[in-house]
Design a protein around this nucleic acid. Sequence first.
DNA 1: CGTATACTTGATTGTGATCAACGACGGTGG
DNA 2: CCACCGTCGTTGATCACAATCAAGTATACG
Lengths: 250, 250
Amino acid sequence: MKNGYTQLRVRTEKQTACYQCPIRNLALFEAVDKELLDWTQKFRSQQYILDARRLLYREDDTVSESYTLFTGWIMLFKMLPDGKRQVLRFALPGDFLGSRGGVPVNHSALAITECVLCGFPQDKLNQLFAERSEIAATLVGIQQRDMTQCYNHMINVGQRSAIESIAGMLIDLYDRCIECHRTARPETIWFPLSQEEIADYAGITLVHVSRVIKELRDQGVLENGHRKIRILDTGELRRIANASTQTGAE
Amino acid sequence: MKNGYTQLRVRTEKQTACYQCPIRNLALFEAVDKELLDWTQKFRSQQYILDARRLLYREDDTVSESYTLFTGWIMLFKMLPDGKRQVLRFALPGDFLGSRGGVPVNHSALAITECVLCGFPQDKLNQLFAERSEIAATLVGIQQRDMTQCYNHMINVGQRSAIESIAGMLIDLYDRCIECHRTARPETIWFPLSQEEIADYAGITLVHVSRVIKELRDQGVLENGHRKIRILDTGELRRIANASTQTGAE
DNA sequence: CGTATACTTGATTGTGATCAACGACGGTGG
DNA sequence: CCACCGTCGTTGATCACAATCAAGTATACG
Protein backbone atom coordinates (compact mmCIF):
# COMPACT_ATOMS: atom_id res chain seq x y z
CA MET A 1 0.00 0.00 0.00
CA LYS A 2 2.98 2.27 0.37
CA ASN A 3 5.64 1.14 -2.09
CA GLY A 4 5.21 4.35 -4.06
CA TYR A 5 4.75 2.55 -7.32
CA THR A 6 1.99 1.57 -9.71
CA GLN A 7 -1.15 1.72 -7.64
CA LEU A 8 -3.97 1.23 -10.05
CA ARG A 9 -7.16 0.38 -8.27
CA VAL A 10 -10.03 -1.14 -10.19
CA ARG A 11 -12.95 1.20 -10.22
CA THR A 12 -15.74 -0.82 -8.65
CA GLU A 13 -18.60 1.64 -8.78
CA LYS A 14 -19.87 3.31 -11.91
CA GLN A 15 -17.89 1.65 -14.70
CA THR A 16 -18.77 4.02 -17.52
CA ALA A 17 -20.06 2.30 -20.63
CA CYS A 18 -18.22 3.06 -23.87
CA TYR A 19 -21.39 3.88 -25.77
CA GLN A 20 -22.12 6.74 -23.42
CA CYS A 21 -18.52 7.87 -23.05
CA PRO A 22 -18.52 11.69 -23.08
CA ILE A 23 -14.96 12.02 -24.38
CA ARG A 24 -15.04 9.34 -27.01
CA ASN A 25 -14.69 11.82 -29.81
CA LEU A 26 -11.25 12.68 -28.52
CA ALA A 27 -10.00 9.17 -28.08
CA LEU A 28 -8.99 6.05 -29.93
CA PHE A 29 -12.41 4.79 -30.84
CA GLU A 30 -13.82 7.89 -32.44
CA ALA A 31 -13.94 6.06 -35.76
CA VAL A 32 -15.98 3.16 -34.48
CA ASP A 33 -19.61 2.87 -35.49
CA LYS A 34 -22.18 3.17 -32.76
CA GLU A 35 -23.34 -0.41 -33.12
CA LEU A 36 -19.79 -1.60 -32.60
CA LEU A 37 -19.23 0.17 -29.34
CA ASP A 38 -20.33 -2.68 -27.15
CA TRP A 39 -17.87 -4.75 -29.09
CA THR A 40 -15.24 -2.07 -28.40
CA GLN A 41 -16.15 -2.30 -24.79
CA LYS A 42 -15.19 -5.96 -24.73
CA PHE A 43 -11.64 -4.85 -25.54
CA ARG A 44 -11.57 -2.60 -22.58
CA SER A 45 -10.08 -4.52 -19.71
CA GLN A 46 -11.04 -2.30 -16.83
CA GLN A 47 -11.63 1.16 -15.53
CA TYR A 48 -9.03 2.13 -12.96
CA ILE A 49 -8.46 4.78 -10.35
CA LEU A 50 -4.96 6.13 -9.85
CA ASP A 51 -4.38 8.26 -6.76
CA ALA A 52 -2.63 11.60 -6.96
CA ARG A 53 1.19 11.52 -6.77
CA ARG A 54 1.37 7.89 -7.90
CA LEU A 55 3.24 6.53 -10.89
CA LEU A 56 1.21 4.93 -13.65
CA TYR A 57 4.38 3.49 -15.13
CA ARG A 58 8.08 4.14 -15.12
CA GLU A 59 10.48 4.60 -18.03
CA ASP A 60 11.70 1.26 -19.48
CA ASP A 61 8.80 -0.66 -17.99
CA THR A 62 7.06 -3.04 -20.34
CA VAL A 63 3.49 -1.93 -19.98
CA SER A 64 0.80 -4.41 -20.95
CA GLU A 65 -2.04 -1.93 -21.35
CA SER A 66 -2.88 1.29 -23.12
CA TYR A 67 -5.00 3.86 -21.34
CA THR A 68 -7.44 6.56 -22.20
CA LEU A 69 -7.40 9.20 -19.50
CA PHE A 70 -10.99 9.75 -18.42
CA THR A 71 -10.60 12.16 -15.50
CA GLY A 72 -7.62 14.01 -14.00
CA TRP A 73 -4.17 15.24 -15.02
CA ILE A 74 -1.15 13.07 -15.69
CA MET A 75 2.41 14.26 -16.19
CA LEU A 76 4.70 12.49 -18.66
CA PHE A 77 8.40 13.00 -17.96
CA LYS A 78 11.93 11.70 -18.15
CA MET A 79 14.57 11.78 -15.43
CA LEU A 80 18.29 12.38 -15.94
CA PRO A 81 20.97 10.56 -13.98
CA ASP A 82 21.72 13.71 -11.99
CA GLY A 83 18.12 14.07 -10.83
CA LYS A 84 17.00 16.69 -13.32
CA ARG A 85 13.55 16.14 -14.75
CA GLN A 86 12.09 17.11 -18.11
CA VAL A 87 8.33 17.17 -18.32
CA LEU A 88 7.33 16.07 -21.81
CA ARG A 89 3.60 16.57 -21.75
CA PHE A 90 0.60 17.04 -19.54
CA ALA A 91 -2.12 14.55 -20.37
CA LEU A 92 -5.69 15.76 -19.94
CA PRO A 93 -8.98 13.85 -20.22
CA GLY A 94 -9.30 12.17 -23.61
CA ASP A 95 -5.56 11.70 -24.06
CA PHE A 96 -4.17 8.31 -24.90
CA LEU A 97 -1.27 6.91 -22.89
CA GLY A 98 0.80 3.88 -22.26
CA SER A 99 2.11 0.98 -24.26
CA ARG A 100 2.71 1.08 -28.00
CA GLY A 101 3.50 -2.19 -29.62
CA GLY A 102 5.11 -4.10 -26.80
CA VAL A 103 8.23 -1.94 -26.59
CA PRO A 104 9.29 -0.61 -23.17
CA VAL A 105 7.89 2.87 -22.63
CA ASN A 106 10.15 5.83 -23.32
CA HIS A 107 8.98 7.98 -20.41
CA SER A 108 7.43 7.83 -16.95
CA ALA A 109 3.89 8.88 -16.06
CA LEU A 110 2.77 10.37 -12.76
CA ALA A 111 -0.72 11.30 -11.62
CA ILE A 112 -0.91 14.95 -10.65
CA THR A 113 -4.48 14.61 -9.44
CA GLU A 114 -6.55 11.53 -8.77
CA CYS A 115 -7.32 10.00 -12.16
CA VAL A 116 -9.77 7.62 -13.77
CA LEU A 117 -8.37 5.61 -16.67
CA CYS A 118 -9.82 3.15 -19.15
CA GLY A 119 -7.42 0.30 -19.83
CA PHE A 120 -7.07 -1.65 -23.07
CA PRO A 121 -4.91 -4.76 -23.12
CA GLN A 122 -1.97 -4.29 -25.43
CA ASP A 123 -1.91 -7.77 -26.85
CA LYS A 124 -5.37 -7.35 -28.29
CA LEU A 125 -4.44 -4.19 -30.18
CA ASN A 126 -2.77 -5.97 -33.08
CA GLN A 127 -5.80 -8.18 -33.42
CA LEU A 128 -7.88 -5.03 -33.39
CA PHE A 129 -5.76 -3.57 -36.19
CA ALA A 130 -6.37 -6.63 -38.32
CA GLU A 131 -10.11 -6.61 -37.80
CA ARG A 132 -10.69 -2.88 -38.01
CA SER A 133 -8.01 -1.07 -39.92
CA GLU A 134 -9.63 2.32 -39.31
CA ILE A 135 -8.57 1.96 -35.67
CA ALA A 136 -4.99 1.66 -36.84
CA ALA A 137 -5.44 4.82 -38.88
CA THR A 138 -6.88 6.57 -35.83
CA LEU A 139 -3.95 5.51 -33.68
CA VAL A 140 -1.57 6.83 -36.31
CA GLY A 141 -3.52 10.09 -36.16
CA ILE A 142 -3.33 10.23 -32.37
CA GLN A 143 0.40 9.72 -32.47
CA GLN A 144 0.59 12.40 -35.11
CA ARG A 145 -1.29 14.82 -32.86
CA ASP A 146 1.00 13.96 -29.95
CA MET A 147 3.99 14.61 -32.18
CA THR A 148 2.60 18.00 -33.17
CA GLN A 149 2.24 18.91 -29.51
CA CYS A 150 5.76 17.70 -28.87
CA TYR A 151 7.12 19.87 -31.68
CA ASN A 152 5.31 22.92 -30.33
CA HIS A 153 6.71 22.24 -26.91
CA MET A 154 10.18 21.99 -28.41
CA ILE A 155 9.81 25.53 -29.71
CA ASN A 156 8.79 26.72 -26.26
CA VAL A 157 11.82 25.13 -24.69
CA GLY A 158 14.37 25.85 -27.38
CA GLN A 159 13.56 29.27 -28.77
CA ARG A 160 11.46 31.24 -26.36
CA SER A 161 12.42 33.25 -23.30
CA ALA A 162 11.07 32.21 -19.91
CA ILE A 163 8.06 34.50 -20.01
CA GLU A 164 7.19 33.59 -23.59
CA SER A 165 7.52 29.93 -22.80
CA ILE A 166 5.26 30.06 -19.75
CA ALA A 167 2.73 32.24 -21.51
CA GLY A 168 2.65 29.74 -24.38
CA MET A 169 2.21 26.87 -22.00
CA LEU A 170 -0.66 28.56 -20.16
CA ILE A 171 -2.45 29.40 -23.39
CA ASP A 172 -2.08 25.84 -24.55
CA LEU A 173 -3.40 24.32 -21.32
CA TYR A 174 -6.14 26.93 -21.14
CA ASP A 175 -7.36 26.04 -24.62
CA ARG A 176 -7.28 22.35 -23.86
CA CYS A 177 -9.20 22.85 -20.62
CA ILE A 178 -11.82 24.93 -22.40
CA GLU A 179 -12.07 22.20 -25.00
CA CYS A 180 -12.85 19.47 -22.51
CA HIS A 181 -14.94 21.48 -20.03
CA ARG A 182 -16.76 23.73 -22.50
CA THR A 183 -16.97 26.34 -19.77
CA ALA A 184 -17.56 30.04 -20.39
CA ARG A 185 -14.49 31.98 -21.43
CA PRO A 186 -13.23 34.12 -18.53
CA GLU A 187 -13.72 31.39 -16.00
CA THR A 188 -11.52 30.31 -13.16
CA ILE A 189 -9.90 27.05 -14.16
CA TRP A 190 -8.81 24.13 -12.04
CA PHE A 191 -5.04 24.21 -12.40
CA PRO A 192 -3.26 21.61 -10.27
CA LEU A 193 0.35 22.16 -11.39
CA SER A 194 3.02 23.20 -8.90
CA GLN A 195 5.60 25.76 -9.96
CA GLU A 196 8.22 23.03 -9.88
CA GLU A 197 6.24 21.07 -12.48
CA ILE A 198 5.89 24.17 -14.63
CA ALA A 199 9.63 24.74 -14.26
CA ASP A 200 10.53 21.23 -15.37
CA TYR A 201 8.17 21.57 -18.32
CA ALA A 202 9.61 24.88 -19.52
CA GLY A 203 13.21 23.99 -18.76
CA ILE A 204 13.80 26.76 -16.21
CA THR A 205 14.10 26.86 -12.42
CA LEU A 206 11.15 27.06 -10.05
CA VAL A 207 12.50 30.30 -8.58
CA HIS A 208 12.35 31.89 -11.97
CA VAL A 209 8.86 30.52 -12.59
CA SER A 210 7.74 32.31 -9.47
CA ARG A 211 9.16 35.59 -10.73
CA VAL A 212 7.63 35.20 -14.18
CA ILE A 213 4.18 34.42 -12.80
CA LYS A 214 4.41 37.40 -10.48
CA GLU A 215 5.27 39.49 -13.53
CA LEU A 216 2.18 38.19 -15.36
CA ARG A 217 0.03 38.86 -12.30
CA ASP A 218 1.43 42.39 -12.02
CA GLN A 219 0.64 42.99 -15.69
CA GLY A 220 -2.96 42.02 -14.96
CA VAL A 221 -2.88 39.09 -17.37
CA LEU A 222 -3.92 36.47 -14.84
CA GLU A 223 -4.90 35.75 -11.26
CA ASN A 224 -3.91 32.57 -9.50
CA GLY A 225 -3.62 30.75 -6.21
CA HIS A 226 -4.94 27.67 -4.44
CA ARG A 227 -4.47 25.36 -7.45
CA LYS A 228 -6.67 27.57 -9.60
CA ILE A 229 -5.97 30.07 -12.32
CA ARG A 230 -7.99 32.74 -14.06
CA ILE A 231 -6.76 34.14 -17.34
CA LEU A 232 -7.89 37.75 -17.47
CA ASP A 233 -6.47 38.70 -20.85
CA THR A 234 -6.03 35.83 -23.27
CA GLY A 235 -5.11 38.22 -26.08
CA GLU A 236 -2.24 39.73 -24.15
CA LEU A 237 -1.10 36.27 -23.06
CA ARG A 238 -1.02 35.10 -26.66
CA ARG A 239 0.86 38.23 -27.62
CA ILE A 240 3.46 37.59 -24.94
CA ALA A 241 3.84 34.01 -26.08
CA ASN A 242 4.68 35.04 -29.63
CA ALA A 243 6.48 38.36 -29.25
CA SER A 244 10.24 38.16 -29.12
CA THR A 245 11.64 40.40 -26.43
CA GLN A 246 8.89 42.99 -26.77
CA THR A 247 9.01 44.58 -23.32
CA GLY A 248 5.61 45.61 -22.04
CA ALA A 249 4.25 48.86 -23.48
CA GLU A 250 2.54 48.75 -26.85
CA MET B 1 13.52 26.09 -61.91
CA LYS B 2 14.37 28.73 -59.36
CA ASN B 3 11.32 29.31 -57.19
CA GLY B 4 13.11 27.90 -54.17
CA TYR B 5 10.36 25.46 -53.42
CA THR B 6 9.61 21.80 -53.81
CA GLN B 7 11.96 20.60 -56.48
CA LEU B 8 11.60 16.87 -56.55
CA ARG B 9 13.07 15.41 -59.68
CA VAL B 10 12.18 11.92 -60.71
CA ARG B 11 15.20 9.73 -60.59
CA THR B 12 15.50 8.40 -64.12
CA GLU B 13 18.56 6.20 -63.86
CA LYS B 14 18.95 3.35 -61.44
CA GLN B 15 15.53 3.12 -59.78
CA THR B 16 16.46 0.81 -56.94
CA ALA B 17 14.22 -2.24 -56.62
CA CYS B 18 12.58 -2.77 -53.23
CA TYR B 19 13.66 -6.37 -52.98
CA GLN B 20 17.28 -5.35 -53.10
CA CYS B 21 16.87 -2.24 -50.95
CA PRO B 22 19.86 -2.08 -48.58
CA ILE B 23 18.06 -0.08 -45.89
CA ARG B 24 14.75 -1.89 -45.91
CA ASN B 25 15.28 -3.24 -42.42
CA LEU B 26 15.13 0.30 -41.10
CA ALA B 27 12.06 1.37 -42.95
CA LEU B 28 8.34 0.89 -43.25
CA PHE B 29 8.33 -2.40 -45.05
CA GLU B 30 10.60 -4.34 -42.76
CA ALA B 31 7.65 -6.54 -41.83
CA VAL B 32 6.86 -7.53 -45.39
CA ASP B 33 7.69 -11.02 -46.54
CA LYS B 34 10.26 -11.36 -49.28
CA GLU B 35 7.77 -12.69 -51.80
CA LEU B 36 5.60 -9.63 -51.27
CA LEU B 37 8.24 -7.07 -52.01
CA ASP B 38 7.47 -6.72 -55.66
CA TRP B 39 3.92 -6.09 -54.55
CA THR B 40 5.24 -3.48 -52.15
CA GLN B 41 7.08 -1.96 -55.00
CA LYS B 42 3.82 -1.35 -56.81
CA PHE B 43 2.87 0.98 -53.98
CA ARG B 44 5.98 3.00 -54.43
CA SER B 45 5.16 5.81 -56.75
CA GLN B 46 8.63 6.95 -57.66
CA GLN B 47 12.20 7.46 -56.66
CA TYR B 48 13.07 11.15 -56.49
CA ILE B 49 16.13 13.32 -56.25
CA LEU B 50 15.99 16.44 -54.12
CA ASP B 51 18.84 18.90 -54.50
CA ALA B 52 20.67 20.30 -51.50
CA ARG B 53 19.11 23.43 -49.93
CA ARG B 54 15.66 22.70 -51.34
CA LEU B 55 12.45 22.27 -49.39
CA LEU B 56 10.76 18.89 -49.57
CA TYR B 57 7.65 20.42 -48.05
CA ARG B 58 6.64 23.36 -45.94
CA GLU B 59 4.67 23.45 -42.69
CA ASP B 60 0.89 23.36 -43.25
CA ASP B 61 1.25 21.92 -46.73
CA THR B 62 -1.00 19.00 -47.49
CA VAL B 63 1.50 16.46 -48.72
CA SER B 64 0.22 13.62 -50.85
CA GLU B 65 3.16 11.27 -50.40
CA SER B 66 5.22 9.68 -47.67
CA TYR B 67 8.93 9.23 -48.22
CA THR B 68 11.65 6.90 -47.15
CA LEU B 69 14.95 8.72 -47.21
CA PHE B 70 17.34 6.62 -49.23
CA THR B 71 20.43 8.84 -49.44
CA GLY B 72 21.34 12.18 -47.88
CA TRP B 73 20.46 14.30 -44.86
CA ILE B 74 17.19 16.17 -44.36
CA MET B 75 16.45 18.72 -41.67
CA LEU B 76 12.97 18.91 -40.13
CA PHE B 77 12.18 22.26 -38.53
CA LYS B 78 9.63 24.87 -37.59
CA MET B 79 9.86 28.63 -38.04
CA LEU B 80 8.60 31.26 -35.62
CA PRO B 81 6.96 34.49 -36.77
CA ASP B 82 10.05 36.46 -35.75
CA GLY B 83 12.33 34.35 -37.93
CA LYS B 84 13.72 32.07 -35.26
CA ARG B 85 14.03 28.45 -36.28
CA GLN B 86 13.85 25.28 -34.22
CA VAL B 87 15.33 22.19 -35.79
CA LEU B 88 13.25 19.21 -34.70
CA ARG B 89 15.20 16.34 -36.16
CA PHE B 90 17.82 15.38 -38.66
CA ALA B 91 16.59 12.59 -40.92
CA LEU B 92 19.22 10.13 -42.11
CA PRO B 93 18.91 7.28 -44.64
CA GLY B 94 16.17 4.85 -43.66
CA ASP B 95 14.05 7.47 -41.91
CA PHE B 96 10.42 7.90 -42.81
CA LEU B 97 9.06 11.35 -43.62
CA GLY B 98 6.12 13.20 -44.92
CA SER B 99 2.38 12.89 -44.82
CA ARG B 100 0.47 11.05 -42.10
CA GLY B 101 -3.19 10.49 -42.70
CA GLY B 102 -4.01 13.41 -44.95
CA VAL B 103 -3.49 16.09 -42.30
CA PRO B 104 -1.31 19.11 -43.16
CA VAL B 105 2.25 18.51 -42.02
CA ASN B 106 3.35 20.01 -38.72
CA HIS B 107 6.85 20.97 -39.81
CA SER B 108 8.97 21.89 -42.81
CA ALA B 109 11.65 19.70 -44.37
CA LEU B 110 14.81 20.93 -46.07
CA ALA B 111 17.50 18.93 -47.84
CA ILE B 112 20.91 19.55 -46.31
CA THR B 113 22.64 17.48 -48.97
CA GLU B 114 21.38 16.11 -52.24
CA CYS B 115 18.93 13.35 -51.38
CA VAL B 116 17.32 10.33 -52.95
CA LEU B 117 13.82 9.54 -51.68
CA CYS B 118 11.34 6.74 -52.30
CA GLY B 119 7.80 8.08 -52.49
CA PHE B 120 4.63 6.27 -51.47
CA PRO B 121 1.27 7.79 -52.35
CA GLN B 122 -0.60 8.69 -49.20
CA ASP B 123 -4.02 7.70 -50.41
CA LYS B 124 -2.94 4.11 -50.85
CA LEU B 125 -1.71 3.83 -47.28
CA ASN B 126 -5.12 3.25 -45.75
CA GLN B 127 -5.78 0.57 -48.30
CA LEU B 128 -2.43 -0.89 -47.36
CA PHE B 129 -3.44 -0.91 -43.70
CA ALA B 130 -6.57 -2.85 -44.48
CA GLU B 131 -4.78 -5.44 -46.56
CA ARG B 132 -1.70 -5.86 -44.39
CA SER B 133 -2.28 -4.84 -40.81
CA GLU B 134 1.32 -5.58 -39.86
CA ILE B 135 2.29 -2.54 -41.91
CA ALA B 136 0.05 -0.45 -39.67
CA ALA B 137 1.78 -1.91 -36.64
CA THR B 138 5.15 -1.06 -38.18
CA LEU B 139 4.10 2.50 -38.84
CA VAL B 140 2.95 2.82 -35.25
CA GLY B 141 6.36 1.54 -34.23
CA ILE B 142 8.15 4.03 -36.48
CA GLN B 143 6.16 6.88 -35.00
CA GLN B 144 6.97 5.53 -31.58
CA ARG B 145 10.68 5.55 -32.39
CA ASP B 146 10.43 9.11 -33.72
CA MET B 147 8.68 10.11 -30.52
CA THR B 148 11.46 8.57 -28.44
CA GLN B 149 14.01 10.58 -30.39
CA CYS B 150 11.92 13.70 -29.93
CA TYR B 151 11.77 13.14 -26.17
CA ASN B 152 15.53 12.67 -25.98
CA HIS B 153 16.01 15.85 -27.93
CA MET B 154 13.70 17.66 -25.52
CA ILE B 155 16.04 16.73 -22.69
CA ASN B 156 18.99 18.08 -24.64
CA VAL B 157 17.25 21.37 -25.22
CA GLY B 158 15.53 21.75 -21.88
CA GLN B 159 17.90 20.44 -19.27
CA ARG B 160 21.41 20.38 -20.59
CA SER B 161 24.03 23.10 -20.86
CA ALA B 162 25.32 24.06 -24.29
CA ILE B 163 28.32 21.74 -24.20
CA GLU B 164 26.30 18.81 -22.89
CA SER B 165 23.64 19.39 -25.49
CA ILE B 166 26.07 19.50 -28.39
CA ALA B 167 28.00 16.51 -27.10
CA GLY B 168 24.74 14.58 -26.83
CA MET B 169 23.77 15.57 -30.33
CA LEU B 170 27.11 14.52 -31.81
CA ILE B 171 27.02 11.17 -30.04
CA ASP B 172 23.53 10.59 -31.32
CA LEU B 173 24.36 11.46 -34.91
CA TYR B 174 27.62 9.54 -34.70
CA ASP B 175 25.81 6.38 -33.59
CA ARG B 176 23.21 6.77 -36.31
CA CYS B 177 25.89 7.27 -38.96
CA ILE B 178 27.76 4.21 -37.75
CA GLU B 179 24.52 2.27 -37.89
CA CYS B 180 23.82 3.07 -41.50
CA HIS B 181 27.38 3.03 -42.82
CA ARG B 182 28.75 0.19 -40.69
CA THR B 183 32.14 1.83 -40.95
CA ALA B 184 35.02 1.13 -38.57
CA ARG B 185 34.84 3.02 -35.28
CA PRO B 186 37.35 5.88 -35.22
CA GLU B 187 36.54 6.92 -38.74
CA THR B 188 36.11 10.36 -40.17
CA ILE B 189 32.44 10.88 -40.80
CA TRP B 190 30.67 12.88 -43.43
CA PHE B 191 29.04 15.65 -41.43
CA PRO B 192 27.27 18.22 -43.56
CA LEU B 193 25.71 20.42 -40.85
CA SER B 194 26.58 24.08 -40.57
CA GLN B 195 27.07 25.60 -37.13
CA GLU B 196 23.88 27.57 -37.63
CA GLU B 197 21.93 24.34 -38.09
CA ILE B 198 23.53 22.88 -34.98
CA ALA B 199 22.64 26.06 -33.13
CA ASP B 200 18.99 25.92 -34.15
CA TYR B 201 18.86 22.28 -33.16
CA ALA B 202 20.33 22.81 -29.71
CA GLY B 203 18.53 26.07 -29.06
CA ILE B 204 21.64 28.24 -28.74
CA THR B 205 23.35 30.82 -30.96
CA LEU B 206 25.79 29.98 -33.72
CA VAL B 207 28.46 32.08 -32.05
CA HIS B 208 28.24 29.96 -28.97
CA VAL B 209 28.28 26.76 -31.02
CA SER B 210 31.58 27.89 -32.47
CA ARG B 211 33.03 28.38 -29.00
CA VAL B 212 31.74 25.04 -27.71
CA ILE B 213 33.15 23.14 -30.68
CA LYS B 214 36.47 24.89 -30.25
CA GLU B 215 36.38 23.79 -26.60
CA LEU B 216 35.76 20.18 -27.66
CA ARG B 217 38.56 20.41 -30.20
CA ASP B 218 40.92 21.85 -27.58
CA GLN B 219 40.04 19.01 -25.22
CA GLY B 220 41.04 16.57 -27.94
CA VAL B 221 37.60 15.01 -28.16
CA LEU B 222 37.14 15.62 -31.85
CA GLU B 223 38.62 17.01 -35.04
CA ASN B 224 36.50 18.72 -37.67
CA GLY B 225 36.46 20.86 -40.74
CA HIS B 226 35.42 20.70 -44.38
CA ARG B 227 32.01 19.17 -43.62
CA LYS B 228 33.64 16.22 -41.93
CA ILE B 229 34.08 15.23 -38.33
CA ARG B 230 36.20 12.71 -36.52
CA ILE B 231 35.31 11.74 -32.99
CA LEU B 232 38.56 10.96 -31.22
CA ASP B 233 37.17 10.02 -27.82
CA THR B 234 33.61 8.74 -27.81
CA GLY B 235 33.83 7.84 -24.13
CA GLU B 236 34.73 11.37 -23.13
CA LEU B 237 32.03 12.76 -25.41
CA ARG B 238 29.42 10.54 -23.80
CA ARG B 239 30.68 11.58 -20.39
CA ILE B 240 30.35 15.25 -21.27
CA ALA B 241 26.84 14.66 -22.57
CA ASN B 242 25.69 13.20 -19.28
CA ALA B 243 27.76 14.97 -16.65
CA SER B 244 26.14 18.00 -15.08
CA THR B 245 28.60 20.86 -14.72
CA GLN B 246 31.60 18.60 -14.20
CA THR B 247 34.39 20.91 -15.31
CA GLY B 248 37.21 19.14 -17.06
CA ALA B 249 39.63 17.31 -14.82
CA GLU B 250 38.63 13.92 -13.51
C1' DC C 1 40.63 36.79 -58.37
C1' DG C 2 36.77 38.80 -56.15
C1' DT C 3 32.67 38.04 -53.65
C1' DA C 4 29.70 35.55 -50.56
C1' DT C 5 29.25 32.41 -47.00
C1' DA C 6 30.89 30.14 -42.96
C1' DC C 7 33.55 30.21 -39.01
C1' DT C 8 36.38 32.54 -35.32
C1' DT C 9 37.44 35.61 -31.68
C1' DG C 10 36.95 39.54 -28.42
C1' DA C 11 34.25 42.79 -25.49
C1' DT C 12 30.10 43.59 -23.21
C1' DT C 13 25.48 42.77 -21.61
C1' DG C 14 21.63 40.33 -19.69
C1' DT C 15 18.63 36.50 -18.71
C1' DG C 16 18.10 33.14 -15.78
C1' DA C 17 20.73 30.04 -12.22
C1' DT C 18 22.14 29.66 -7.71
C1' DC C 19 22.27 30.46 -2.78
C1' DA C 20 19.71 31.79 1.04
C1' DA C 21 16.04 33.13 3.94
C1' DC C 22 11.46 34.03 4.88
C1' DG C 23 6.28 33.78 4.58
C1' DA C 24 1.87 31.43 3.60
C1' DC C 25 -0.83 27.62 3.72
C1' DG C 26 -2.80 22.96 4.83
C1' DG C 27 -2.75 19.02 7.43
C1' DT C 28 -1.90 16.51 11.85
C1' DG C 29 -1.83 15.63 16.51
C1' DG C 30 -1.82 17.32 21.18
C1' DC D 1 -8.09 25.45 19.17
C1' DC D 2 -3.49 26.05 18.73
C1' DA D 3 1.25 24.44 17.99
C1' DC D 4 3.96 22.08 14.90
C1' DC D 5 5.64 20.61 10.64
C1' DG D 6 6.18 20.00 5.77
C1' DT D 7 5.35 21.69 1.32
C1' DC D 8 4.99 25.43 -1.64
C1' DG D 9 5.64 29.99 -3.07
C1' DT D 10 8.01 34.65 -2.55
C1' DT D 11 11.81 37.74 -2.51
C1' DG D 12 16.64 39.44 -2.39
C1' DA D 13 21.68 39.19 -3.55
C1' DT D 14 25.05 37.42 -6.37
C1' DC D 15 26.97 34.75 -10.13
C1' DA D 16 27.60 32.50 -14.62
C1' DC D 17 26.43 30.86 -18.95
C1' DA D 18 25.16 32.19 -23.09
C1' DA D 19 23.31 36.27 -26.04
C1' DT D 20 24.51 40.14 -28.41
C1' DC D 21 27.38 43.36 -30.90
C1' DA D 22 31.23 43.86 -33.70
C1' DA D 23 35.40 42.68 -36.56
C1' DG D 24 38.11 39.85 -38.49
C1' DT D 25 39.76 35.41 -40.97
C1' DA D 26 39.12 31.14 -43.64
C1' DT D 27 36.85 28.69 -47.19
C1' DA D 28 33.98 27.79 -51.14
C1' DC D 29 32.31 29.47 -55.47
C1' DG D 30 31.76 31.61 -59.93
